[in-house]
Amino acid sequence: MAYSTKVIDHYENPRNVGTLDAKDTAVGTGLVGAPACGDVMKLQIKVNDNGVIEDAKFKTFGCGSAIASSSLVTEWIKGKTLEEAGAIKNTVIAQHLSLPPVKLHCSMLAEDAIKAAINDYQLKKSA
């Protein structure tokens, strides 16, 4: 399987690998996928008072495409409002990384991870 240069770039130089303090009320954490399926993504966002994502971090267990998809979305969602970030579609991620059909699930997982992180943040806020 030949990987696109963008996937290789993100795999070799992943952006925003790391962890934010999950207990911080400004931080939302999304954990999607399953070890038995071969990919797990943890995506964390830090949201400021204006509802804008000011930081994002990820950790991923998975293939190169899964790592690249999560790395890419951390770049994209920084500086976006929750609403804008929540509107990112997997097809755009897949297209940007030129993912082959067998790897489309990686982009879906990245989309799910954003939604899960936003959801977690909003749950904390309303609690």
Binding site: Y3, Y11, E12, G38, F61, G62, C63, G64, A66, I67
Partner: peptide
């Protein structure tokens, strides 16, 4: 453990 095989091969 904790590292996916295909991702590892790519590296």
């Amino acid at each position: 453990a904790f590292v996916e095989g295909e991702g590892l091969m790519m590296g």
